[in-house]
């Protein structure tokens, strides 16, 4: 029996991920016969695969892009930061909502300019100028372009939450994976207007100094999608589901970026296929629960055996 996941990410169109990754997958495929005795362990497989998927893919695509040097020279922003810090922490807290407001204004003004200027500090500057702020006010975005992309992600996540809230009421009857599919599609559609500039955004997100925040945003996204799709699991499944969704999102992003078909049809089809693969894993997990019961029986009888062997029965009898 081959594992349903064996085709899951390997057949992905964007996988030019090199042979190391593939041989890793075949290793999993081989060991899966050992793993399927326990549903819990089987559920770890997508986690590992998604992790490998995420790590492998981002570095592959990010490397050439990083080399092509989208410069965000942070000297001016750092200066602005230092002066802001010297003003005192308490004052900063009071004005944080005002600062957020300014950020939001600059950000929204800069967004239409992304097509010409990319996710750069220059774009933020132009945005700030267009609504009458001074050129240096971009300093509130600590890392220039990176903050820009992160701000965009954060707002898309917020937007998705609002969509999800409505969606949850409307499609209350559809199952969890269908909802996950819908929400993922909605979220991926949000980046469509910026597709030509998106490789740059992905490269910025995978930079070392921003990767922690990027992971947080990705986690936030995956957590929201799972929560609003109706996931209420409180065990290891909680992690595997979120990892799977995060992996799907990243795969979707990478696929969209390279998609040359009309309306990005190929990417949406790819996403649908991945969702079907996950559905198979769900069923696969279900069929393991019987084996788990058998496992429990074996454990029980072996415990009785140990008791008899070690003479604990007689100890109990004597102590009564």
């Amino acid at each position: 029996m081959t594992h349903p996941l064996s085709s899951c990410f390997c057949s992905c169109r964007v996988n030019r991920g090199g042979q190391a990754e593939n041989s890793l997958f075949s290793l999993f495929r081989g060991s899966v016969h050992l793993w399927k005795i326990d549903r819990m362990l089987a559920r770890y497989l997508p986690l590992l695969q998604c992790y490998g998927n995420f790590m492998g893919r981002t570095t592959i695509i990010a490397r050439p892009l990083l080399a092509s040097n989208f410069s965000t020279n942070g000297t001016t922003s750092q200066d602005a930061n230092a002066s802001a810090q010297s003003e005192g922490r308490r004052e900063e807290q009071v004005s944080s909502s005002k600062e957020d407001d300014v950020k939001f204004k600059i950000f929204s003004a800069a967004l239409p300019l992304v097509h010409q200027l990319g996710w750069t500090k220059e774009c933020l500057e132009a945005g700030a100028e267009s609504i009458g702020f001074s050129k240096s006010s971009h300093g509130i975005f600590e890392h220039g372009g990176t903050s820009f992309v992160q701000f965009f992600h954060r707002n898309c996540n917020k937007e998705l939450r609002k969509i999800a809230k409505v969606e949850q009421i409307e499609s209350a009857k559809s199952d969890e994976l269908t909802k996950v599919h819908q929400l993922l599609e909605k979220r991926l559609q949000m980046i469509l207007p910026y597709l030509p500039q998106w490789p740059q955004a992905m490269a910025l997100m995978s930079r070392p100094h921003s990767s922690l925040d990027s992971y947080k945003l990705l986690y936030e996204l995956a957590d929201d999608i799972c929560f609003f799709a109706g996931d209420r699991s409180l065990n290891a499944t909680w992690y595997t589901k979120r990892a799977a969704v995060a992996g799907l999102y990243i795969t979707g992003e990478l696929s969209l970026v390279q998609d040359k078909s009309a309306n990005c049809d190929e990417s949406w089809q790819m996403l649908a296929r991945r969702i079907e693969d996950l559905r198979k894993v769900e069923e696969f997990g279900g069929s393991c629960s019987r084996q788990q019961e058998i496992l429990k029986d074996i454990a029980q009888s072996s415990l009785t055996l140990i008791r008899n062997l070690t003479g604990m029965q007689s100890y109990q009898r004597n102590s009564r």
Binding site: S108, L111, P112, I131, F152, N155, E159, K162, M190, P193
Partner: peptide, 21 residues
């Protein structure tokens, strides 16, 4: 000031709790 579709409803926030809405 033109907002992208992704941000259009951001200002008119009906929900108070950001976490669960």
């Amino acid at each position: 000031l033109r907002l992208s579709p992704a941000l259009r409803h951001l200002r008119a926030s009906k929900f108070t709790c950001n976490n669960c809405l």
